[in-house]
Simulated scan of single mutants.
Amino acid sequence: MVKLVLLHRADSIYGDVPEAQYDFPKAYLKAVSDGVGDWAIYYEPVKAGPKGYFAVAKIRQVIPNPAAEGRFLALVEPESFLEFDATVPRLIHGRPLESALGHVDGTPKAGGALQSAVRRLPEAEFARIVNLGLPPDLERDEATRYDPVQPGFADAPAVFERPVIERLTRRAYRDVAFRRKVRAAYDYRCAMSGLRLRNGGGRPEVQAAHIRPVADGGSDSVRNGLALSGTLHWMFDRGLVSVAEDATILVSRNKVPGDVVSRLINADNRLHTPGDPRDAPHPAYLKWHRENVFGQWTPDGSAPWD
């Protein structure tokens, strides 16, 4: 097994879905096959967009692409994909983070390896890039973001730095990373009510909801997330509200009182989406929610409006 860098362009003509699959030609089959069972970092070249190194995922399997002869798909472990909290540039202080992209003196090379869609990545360089994109102290940073003094943190002399892979697979860490990315993508505004509420300490009241739960094959991609108020998050998880193909908000009218709808849902009845269209909900996740969750709630207790 070997760790990899996978070049990805948002405007790619190939069938890339970073959280699910990576489409590549036969020329890279040996390199990608060597990476099966190990982790890869996604990289967006500067000319294609501003991201740089932007996410990490584990490669589960390589199969022929059924839609394109001579191409292959690297399938991603469903629960492994995680976007970086902050994108990481290729160069820091003028030197590449990948040694293969630099000369002996550390100055960057041009062309050649830089343009390769798949690059092998040494363990130490993988760890360095991940640590820059997903810092070891991310949980502490989030916990003290709006309240600097937190029980259990104030007396800690230093952050315990867990091994990179342990951090990437730990649910508590992933939940923090997902929440930060989703709420920021929606500018801390509820996607259904349109409200941006903060408490007295400035803490955003909006929550991050998975459209398709991780337990049901969903990912921690921003495109599988919605920023929602607490009540609407509760309603969305129970299928009382959903989102149509045209971004219209769907409401289970026989289960939700009309006055509740008028108070909670924005007047135009349409979903507010992120400023960056690449962060907008993926149609496949919304379709899954409509087909598997929407309208299926059976009351098992009082609702928030009772």
Rank of each mutant, 00 (worst) to 15 (best):
F54E: 01
F54D: 02
A55S: 09
V56T: 14
V56N: 05
V56C: 07
V56H: 03
V56S: 08
K58C: 11
K58Y: 00
K58D: 02
I59A: 08
I59L: 12
R60L: 09
I63M: 05
I63Q: 05
N65E: 01
P66I: 08
P66T: 09
P66N: 06
E69G: 03
G70T: 04
R71Y: 04
L73P: 05
L73E: 03
V76N: 03
E77W: 01
P78S: 15
E79W: 00
S80R: 04
S80Y: 00
F81H: 11
E83A: 08
F84D: 04
D85K: 09
D85F: 08
D85T: 13
D85P: 07
A86I: 14
T87A: 11
T87L: 03
V88G: 10
P89S: 13
P89H: 08
R90V: 06
H93A: 15
P96K: 12
P96E: 08
L97G: 12
E98H: 09
E98Y: 05
S99N: 06
A100G: 10
A100I: 12
L101T: 13
G102T: 15
G102W: 00
G102V: 15
H103T: 15
H103E: 13
V104E: 09
V104F: 03
V104L: 09
D105I: 11
D105F: 07
P108E: 07
P108R: 10
K109M: 15
K109D: 11
A110E: 14
A110I: 14
G111I: 13
A113D: 12
R119E: 01
R119Y: 01
R119H: 06
P122S: 02
P122K: 02
E123D: 04
E123C: 03
A124M: 07
A127W: 00
A127Q: 07
R128S: 12
R128A: 15
R128D: 11
V130G: 13
V130A: 13
L132R: 08
G133D: 11
L134E: 08
L134K: 10
